[in-house]
Design a protein around this nucleic acid. Structure first.
Lengths: 223, 223
DNA sequence: TTTCTAATGTAAGCCAGCTAACATTTAAAG
DNA sequence: CTTTAAATGTTAGCTGGCTTACATTAGAAA
């Protein structure tokens, strides 16, 4: 089950990009990025939102001591830079392509606001999208407040699988191919990399998951 | 400096409530609540947003082991229940009056959506408000991820003062009268109550703050 | 005013998870 | 194919902050 909610419920990409809006079509265009190209930096003006047509985009920022902190790695059909809609002046994060053939559809905030005002269906989908991001943030906060590291890791893996995973036909395992390093995951769930590594290998020992650098498997329980 | 951003920038109350909208005025009304009355519970339908005309409202939820967890205590001019705008179906929190004469202006989501569609100024203010809540949530998450408990406490106190505090004329101290217990504050910043208490008293020892149950003072440094 | 409950103050003992440091493996790039 | 940097694996030792338990105090209610 590919449970990316965008596809189920609020596929902004399909609405925005197949030129459904005549007015929008005129200046509608895709941008291409190669690996490591930045779509925007911290402190850039927040004047657009972006839809990923193809490829992957890393969203992150730099901590006080200069470490890169990954907030998310997004792929086809996903939207980012949405804080621009909400009156953000400058970016508080960067967005960087991590594939060599990333294609992105930029939409100016003004356009976005026009679309939202003139099309109720569209605005509701945007609202729903925002609600979703909001709830996810709240959930992450609550995990951090009340759950221990191992629980947080399990939740993270589950969510990753639900959002991007597929069922392996041979084994029935839930599998995700991803681009997160253990360092990324550690900072996302609020732990240190060594601790994360130990927990990952514990879960492997316990036959709950299996993993390589690129792939995580939630094992089907035969019990 | 009363830095409640609502007053500076996005005073939704003044826009919504003094009947600026004829269409809205017709079914516009206030609701009264006494101490401990609930405005809504968890699992209620999310069909309205609420503006506080007078009094204070506690927003919170119950943790798995049944403890009450306070998310915020809001007062005059502030808005809550805003997730209804974003397609939330049922509440994931409760809202409870903590004063005996709380007056609240409820606004149906449909009304809200209409207003947003038909009035650009209004919709921009709502957007900005949401952006603000979003950023605050992100900031809280980052503090939790990267800062130790004492730093988080300092940030919390600073924010509380900035939002609700005033300058004491006699001493130049920054003062807040508030309704949070130490237990509330502890769970807001992600620590245990005993730890919080010790830190508060440390800060007092260090002449950084002074406090009673109802009031916190950020002391003016004479150094 | 007195009573009583919730909030605050304090201490002892423990441990999850941190830091620091190093070894090993993978896969990207030449 | 070889080189090399980045990612992953692993250990030892330490500590911030937790839990539990109890004492004290403030302020709401009677």
């Amino acid at each position: 089950m590919r449970a990316i909610w965008f596809f189920e419920d609020v596929n902004l990409f399909n609405i925005l990009c197949p030129h459904k809006f005549k007015r929008f079509k005129a200046d509608h265009d895709f941008c291409s990025y190669r690996k490591k190209d930045y779509i925007y930096f911290e402190d850039d003006a927040s004047s657009k939102v972006y839809l990923i047509e193809k490829g992957r985009v890393k969203i992150g920022y730099y901590s006080e001591n200069g470490d890169e902190v990954v907030k998310a790695i997004l792929s086809m059909g996903e939207l980012f830079g949405e804080k621009a809609i909400f009156g953000e002046q400058t970016r508080d994060e960067f967005a960087q392509s991590i594939d060599n053939n990333t294609s992105i559809c930029p939409i100016g905030v003004d356009t976005m606001h026009d679309l939202m005002r003139n099309n109720q269906t569209f605005s509701f989908k945007v609202y729903k999208f925002i609600g979703f991001r909001f709830k996810r943030l709240e959930r992450r906060l609550q995990l951090l407040l009340f759950k221990d590291t191992k629980t947080r890791l399990m939740e993270f893996l589950q969510e990753l699988c639900d959002d991007y995973g597929y069922d392996c036909e041979k084994t029935g395992d839930h599998v995700v191919k991803h681009h997160y390093t253990q360092k990324d995951i550690a900072s996302l769930i609020g732990t240190s990399r060594p601790t994360l590594n130990i927990l990952m290998n514990e879960l492997k020992e316990e036959n709950i998951i299996n993993f390589t650098r690129k792939e995580i498997r939630m094992l089907k329980k035969i019990a």
